[in-house]
Simulated assay, not measured.
Amino acid sequence: MKISPLGDRVVLKSAEVEETTKSGIILTGNSKEKPVYSEVVAVGPGAVVDGKKVPMEVKVGQKVIYSKYAGTEVKFGEDEYTIVKQGDILAVVE
């Protein structure tokens, strides 16, 4: 089974959360921040606005930064994903 997003949605694989701070303090589960840096694992076909197709600007395999509180978190099998709209992606990391 695989996830195939619809419209202008993008499926992101959650990045690993830092377990220690730069100064060496170990963080508990509640202290860890939601990552905003993820890898694109699936891309929808694109949205249609006023009868014109809007192409997707991201591709599978790219690393992206997205809005902190954007998207829907889902667990699929053993992995956790975030599904966001293309507009919630702020930048591509190269």
Rank of each mutant, 00 (worst) to 15 (best):
V93T: 06
K52I: 11
K52Y: 11
K85N: 15
A91V: 07
K2W: 03
Y81V: 02
K52D: 06
V10F: 02
V84F: 05
V58G: 06
S67V: 10
A91E: 13
V43T: 12
V43D: 08
D50V: 06
I65E: 11
R9I: 01
Y69T: 15
K85A: 10
Q62L: 03
E57P: 10
T20P: 00
K53E: 13
V60H: 03
A47C: 14
V74S: 01
E18L: 13
L6S: 02
A70C: 13
E57M: 14
E73A: 04
A47M: 07
V74D: 00
L12N: 02
T72I: 04
V84S: 05
G44V: 08
I25C: 04
F76I: 02
E16D: 05
I3N: 00
K13V: 03
K63W: 05
V43C: 14
F76E: 01
K2P: 03
S23K: 05
G29I: 14
G7R: 09
T72F: 03
M1I: 03
Y81M: 00
E57I: 12
V84E: 06
V41M: 03
G71S: 08
V64Q: 05
F76T: 01
A91Q: 11
L90Q: 10
G24E: 10
S31I: 11
K75C: 00
S4E: 01
E80M: 01
D88G: 12
T28D: 14
G71F: 07
L12D: 04
E18P: 08
R9K: 12
V58W: 13
L6Y: 02
G61M: 10
P55Y: 09
L6R: 01
G44I: 14
V92L: 06
V54T: 09
Q86F: 11
E78R: 02
M1N: 05
A47S: 15
S38G: 08
V64R: 01
V58D: 00
K32E: 14
E16W: 02
T72E: 04
L27M: 13
E19H: 12
V84A: 09
G29Q: 09
V58Y: 05
D8W: 00
E16H: 05
V84C: 14
Y37V: 10
K52V: 10
P35K: 09
V48D: 05
G87K: 15
P5G: 09
V49A: 08
K75D: 01
K53A: 12
A91I: 06
G7N: 07
L90H: 10
V40N: 01
K2Y: 00
A15H: 07
G29P: 02
K2T: 07
V41C: 04
I3T: 02
